[in-house]
Nucleic acid binder design. Structure first.
Length: 876
RNA sequence: GGGAGUAUAGCUCAGUUGGUUUAGAGCAUCUGCCUUACAAGCAGAGGGUCAUAGGUUCGACUCCUAUUACUCCCACCA
């Protein structure tokens, strides 16, 4: 075999293998007779770059795909990107601004041309980055939510829901994002705690010179929109206000005092100013009491004509100014510190402004019902299960979904307005024209004007598992029938409502079938201090730099080592480092084996035993692995494989079969070792595809395109595996002899003598004698009936081992140690006896348990006796 | 305000329906080793009243109740 570097350099081989995999198109899937395993990627924003959250998410998907591929399934992992209307539009607007172009100066068509151009040039970088991570996506199927067929599906679904009466248009109070200048859905509003102020303003009586009512508000700038002051009818303090009018400060508008039970008497002064245009509650009260609604804001959050002297100011500048003005007019009673929650736009992080406007809505209730059932019945499984509660809570109380966005980048709403402002909804302008003619027979097609708004991004994402296979446009096509429902969805719990719930609704609504069978919720990647990774904190490592430093395999392992489903992952560079070290460890195992020359010599007993034992161990591990995968315990699974390879294979198996320096190895052991090593690479392949592939090809001559991922995952042969348990005992013996060596400062090179007291374990020890002598570096095992002179004792379970040491034994030290042990076992015996002398225990506990306690007792007594003898011999 | 979850070694987590020697792993720490695959390593070691207080039971890390702390979700109190 060839010379190998002493360190594994991931960089040197990862690209090579990824290119080979691509060139042989091994990730591509087409329907065939095999069972499909389908995952659609949660499409990242087309503008996005890879962050740690993606790394975790995509690694998990790739592990599952690669495992199923080796299980013989027809794996199809569809990659793609989301047009992300708000985020992308904002990005394009900014880019244009840098070029000195103002969006407002462009026509819709001109703007979209720029946007598409930018998307073609810079979009989808993230997909390239996934390749660095080793993701086995079917790149031929790469989708984009604004692809022609995907867009068609969106429009079709819109029309369908409209025809079913589930989509309607109307004026409602919506969440307005003044920066993006669009409405957003309830789910896109993030509430955050904020230290603010509570201002107590004086509203003078209109018909009295002196009196006034004090009203508490957090938003003094909205007084310009006040149309009433409201108090609770039960509030005796305000009983005299019936029929009174008040003067809004600064504005000097006369407004009525109204009475409504809504008002909390205990809050503030018990008097509430009503601004129907800018607060959802005030809006409702306004309707109930037939109040005027005065809008004081422009769409960008500045004051409009109703803002009087403050016209043109930003809403927050206005607040400062108006407070100053109120103070100078002595209209503020007091200002208190106050903590409240404020709604921020998920995308732009600016405070949301409630705004009354004409929008499109989708009714959810009808679709939510079966979607809830699908999860509650277990048809769709959540991992971990606790998210079912979250899901149920939301599904039982769904609000209508505001789906229109005042943007250009996205799917334009297929509603067409007639000159009289009536509208029709249709798949195309032509079809709309046909419909319009029925309303207005003499209409011309040019008279139709399409709605300016686009649809919420999630209105296309919720179709993703179907539209990836063109299942909306051609519901009977072969692909959708084969790949749908998909198998697993891997995503974060933060988009359970945005996306997961809506996909389930859409799947059931449009295909009468669930979109996926399992949902695996990942945790959130945090930094060491437990903070979320964010650009502004600068605490997020660059994934590509990590890959460069530790290899994709190392990073993949690092992401998985501590991320059980649903648990947050506190990221630390120590994890990928551990991953890299693991790659290196395996690499060095390869180097060891590569240095061996095989020869037709007899197989040593120790090697024969080691091979037999390792195969049994492999069986046990394979069952463990299958169990872990079935429960999506990937983190546990990888840890098990890690210690299986590092400890069992490298530290024990290889050390046993390792021939003496520069001696050849017998053919049989050598061949078995190669084969076992190959199996280990198969087991690890889903987690660490690169290093395993490289080693697989170095272990044996094989064609370049005979890829590890196409091999079969090893299966347990499922027989009894007694040696696995026996070996644990043998390891204990070896470890304790090594421990003695260590504590007495004896060199590992020094061959020791070893006496073992005859006992029931004699046969077992004899069976493994060859291994014990080799790994503990002892001469041979001598069975004796009593302790030998000049020896130190070891106790492994109930077996006594005596090791002669040449140096003087420090009697006092030994006596002290033994006394400590005696004390421990005596205490232990007391506690066992307590149990055994308890009649209720003996009568009620299962026989097995009682027998076990008796055995414990017997074992302890044996040990105690031995210790006492030992003590006596030392004290002589 | 409502709901959910978590609490085990310095850190991150296992601990399967209560009973396998008065709790396990990885990382970190300490000791000794550059032993001829690997110092990105080898051989060992130390470290825990299983959040607190009660209860159920022959027996509780495991089940129940309360308390405390943290996390998350939901909700229109200005």
């Amino acid at each position: 075999m060839q010379e190998l570097e002493s360190k594994y350099i991931a960089k040197n081989i990862e690209k090579k293998w990824y290119d080979r995999w691509l060139s042989k198109n091994v990730f591509h899937s087409l329907p065939d007779e095999r069972t499909p395993y389908t995952i659609v990627i949660p499409p990242p924003n087309v503008t996005g770059v890879l962050h740690m959250g993606h790394m975790l998410n995509e690694t998990i998907q790739d592990v599952l795909c690669r495992k199923e591929r080796m299980n013989g399934k027809n794996v199809c992992w569809v990659p793609g990107t989301d047009h992300a209307s708000i985020a992308t539009e904002a990005k394009v607007v900014n880019l244009l601004k840098e070029k000195g172009i103002n969006k407002a100066d462009l026509s819709r068509e001109e703007f979209l041309k720029y946007a598409w151009q930018w998307k073609e040039e810079k979009g989808g970088i993230i997909l390239q980055q996934l390749k660095e991570l080793g993701c086995s996506c079917d790149w031929d199927r790469t989708k984009f939510t604004m692809d022609e067929d995907m867009s068609q599906a969106v429009i079709k679904v819109f029309c369908d829901l409209y025809d079913k009466g589930l989509i309607y248009r109307g004026v409602r109070m919506v969440n307005w994002d003044p920066k993006a200048q669009t409405a957003v859905s309830d789910e896109e509003v993030i509430y955050k705690d904020q230290h603010s102020k509570l201002y107590y303003l004086r509203y003078r009586f209109a018909d009295e010179k002196d009196g006034y009512v004090v009203v508490a508000t957090t938003r003094p700038e909205t007084i310009m929109g006040d149309t009433a002051v409201c108090v609770n009818p039960k509030d005796e303090r305000f009983a005299s206000l019936k029929g009174k009018k008040l003067i809004v400060p600064i504005v000097n508008r006369e407004v009525p005092v109204i009475f409504d039970e809504y008002v909390d008497m205990t809050f503030g002064t018990g008097a509430l100013k009503i601004t129907p245009a800018h607060d959802i509650n005030d809006y409702n009260i306004g309707i109930k009491h037939k109040l005027n609604s005065i809008n004081i804001f422009n769409d960008n959050g500045t004051l409009n004509d109703n803002g009087l002297a403050y016209k043109g100011m930003d809403r927050f500048d206005c607040r400062k100014k108006i407070v100053e003005d109120l103070q100078s007019a002595d209209l503020i009673e007091k200002i208190e510190d106050y903590d409240n929650k404020i709604g921020l736009s998920e995308r732009t992080s600016v405070p949301i402004e409630p705004k009354l406007s004409m929008q499109w809505f989708c009714k959810m209730k009808q679709m939510a019902e079966p979607a809830l059932k699908a999860v509650e019945s277990g048809q769709i499984k959540f991992h971990p299960e606790k998210f079912i509660n979250t899901y149920r809570h939301w599904m039982e109380d769904t609000k209508d979904w505001c789906i229109s966005r005042q943007l250009w980048w996205g799917h334009r709403i297929p509603a067409y307005y007639l000159p009289n402002n009536e509208y029709v909804v249709a798949l195309s302008l032509e079809q709309a024209f046909e419909k319009a003619k029925q309303i207005m027979p003499d209409i011309k097609i040019e008279d139709l004007r399409q709605d300016e708004d686009v649809l919420d991004t999630w209105f296309s994402s919720w179709l993703w598992p179907m539209s990836c296979f063109n299942g909306i446009n051609e519901p009977e096509n072969e692909e959708i029938k084969y790949y749908y429902p998909t198998s697993d969805l891997i995503t974060g719990p933060d988009i359970i409502f945005f996306w997961v719930a809506r996909m389930i609704m859409a799947g059931l609504e449009f295909r009468k079938e669930i979109p996926f069978k399992n949902v695996y919720f990942t945790g959130i990647v945090r930094d060491k201090l437990g903070r979320k990774m964010s650009k502004t904190l600068g605490n997020s490592p660059d994934p590509l730099l990590l890959i460069d430093k530790y290899g994709a395999d190392g990073v993949r392992m690092g992401m998985l080592m501590c991320s059980p489903a649903g648990n947050d992952l506190p990221f630390d560079e120590a994890y990928p480092e551990q991953g890299r070290n693991f790659s290196n460890k395996i690499w060095n195992a390869l180097r060891l084996i590569s240095g061996w020359t095989e020869e037709e010599t007899e197989q040593p007993e120790s090697s024969k035993l080691a091979v037999e034992w390792f195969k049994e161990r492999m069986n046990v591990m394979l069952e463990q692995i299958e169990d872990d995968f079935s429960k999506y315990r990937l983190s546990e699974c990888l840890k098990n494989i890690y210690s299986f390879i590092w400890d069992d294979f490298c530290s024990w198996f290889l050390e046993i079969i390792k021939p003496e320096y520069q001696k050849p190895i017998d053919k049989k052991t050598y061949r078995e070792t190669i084969s076992v090593f190959e199996d280990l690479m198969k087991i690890l392949q889903p987690f660490m595809p690169f290093v395993t592939e490289e080693i697989y090809h170095k272990l044996r001559e094989r064609p370049e395109d005979e890829f590890l991922m196409n091999a079969c995952y090893p299966k347990s042969s499922k027989k009894e595996n007694p040696m696995d348990g026996e070996f644990v005992f043998i390891k204990e013996i070896i470890t304790s002899i090594r421990g003695l060596r260590n504590s007495k400062g004896l060199s590992p090179k020094q061959v020791l003598q070893c006496y073992i007291k005859e006992s029931g374990s004699k046969d077992l020890i004899l069976k493994y004698e060859s291994i014990i002598t080799k790994l503990a570096n002892i001469d041979r095992i001598n069975f004796v009936s009593d302790k030998q002179e000049g020896t130190l004792s070891l106790m492994v379970r109930t077996t006594e081992i005596f090791i002669p040491v040449s140096q003087n034994i420090n009697k006092e030290e030994e006596i002290k140690k033994i006394n400590e042990q005696i004390k421990y076992y005596e205490g232990f015996i007391v506690s066992i006896n307590k149990k055994l002398s308890n009649e209720k225990f003996v009568n009620n506990a299962p026989e097995k348990v009682v027998a076990l306690e008796r055995k414990k007792l017997a074992d302890c007594e044996t040990k105690l006796n031995a210790l006492k003898q030992e003590l006596a011999s030392l004290q002589n």
